[in-house]
């Protein structure tokens, strides 16, 4: 396969990943690494580099759309980015000193976890109740639109959320992914931010988190432009188109299919790593 053919096939596959990622709300980034490693025999580190850059592109692209709708919370995002960016640098440093087989196993576990997380049912959030002291100090409570009205919501358990975000950042730098599933866990479950706000704020943060590890990846030679080009352009075009179809799609069905794909890729990553098929 020459360079032109390889670019075309990788771009097409990345387009599909971006499209399904946007339709399901799971993000296409998480399947890029297994796609390149298992499908094209690409070295884990080059795959992680390409994935990381595509994650910055889709996050900034999607965030642009979300931010204009005004449901992300800039203060929550900025506050938690302190944890995610420091975590991302730590993760990127760890990636350089970890054997690729170990990275592949961790990656497989994250894929399985992401698949499971995406199928869980959302609990309704309590919007009112006593104010959290730290949330007030850092002005993290906000307003969100519900049926045309602006309704206030509260933020809780700030230290737990902050700690989980550090972990999300570390995973992002370690594996070259956005780790949106961990970010949503920290904001939904720990801090009890309404789903509408947490999803968009998480999307908003992913690009900044990924940019923090990009410098380390670039200087270590993980960013292979010939590979990043088809992946990033493909994922970006796919996610833009996917977002257009979002309103018409049966999200639950798409979600189920994509989660199954992610889980299968997770099992295959772990299997291949344990059998020494990944160099």
């Amino acid at each position: 396969m020459n360079q032109l053919e390889m670019s075309e096939i990788i771009a097409a596959a990345s387009f599909l990943a971006g499209f399904l990622g946007a339709l399901s709300g799971l993000g296409g980034g998480v399947v890029i690494v297994p796609l390149l490693v298992l499908g094209f025999g690409v070295d884990m580190r080059y795959a992680m580099g390409a994935s990381l850059i595509s994650v910055i592109a889709t996050s900034s692209g999607a965030a642009a759309a979300y931010v204009r709708e005004g449901i992300s919370n800039i203060r929550i995002g900025m506050f938690l980015e302190i944890a995610t960016t420091i975590g991302a640098i730590v993760g990127a440093m760890l990636a350089a000193s970890s054997p690729t087989r170990l990275l592949a196993v961790v990656f497989g576990i994250v894929l399985l976890y992401s698949a499971g997380m995406s199928l869980r049912r959302k609990k309704p959030m309590a919007l009112d109740g006593p104010a959290d002291h730290l949330a007030q100090t850092f002005k993290l409570d906000g307003l969100m639109p519900v049926d045309g009205d602006w309704v206030p919501y509260r933020t809780r358990r700030i230290p737990l959320g902050f700690g989980l975000m550090f972990g999300a950042g570390t995973l992002s730098g370690l594996l070259g992914i956005g780790s949106g599933a961990v970010k949503v866990l920290a904001m939904d479950e720990a801090m009890q931010i309404p789903f509408k706000v947490s999803t968009t704020t998480s999307n908003f943060m992913i690009g900044v988190t990924a940019a923090a590890s990009a410098g380390v990846f670039l200087s270590r030679g993980y960013i292979q432009p010939a590979l990043v080009m088809p992946v990033t352009l493909g994922v970006l075009a796919g996610s833009v188109l996917g977002a257009r179809f979002l309103a018409a799609a049966k999200v639950r069905t798409v979600r189920l299919i994509f989660a199954t794909v992610i889980a299968a890729l997770g099992v295959e990553m772990i299997f291949n790593a344990l059998h020494g098929r990944l160099s």
Binding site: M1, N2, Q3, L4, M6, S7, F40, G41, V42, D43, M44, R45, Y46, R220, G221, Y222, I223, Q224, P225, A226, L227, M229, P230, L233, S279
Partner: peptide, 23 residues
Amino acid sequence: GGILYLIHSGARVVSYHHFAGTP
């Protein structure tokens, strides 16, 4: 950049199976 690259080197066969790091 991608168009430039593929015009010049599109016919080359490149493998990313082994990690050497970018130049």
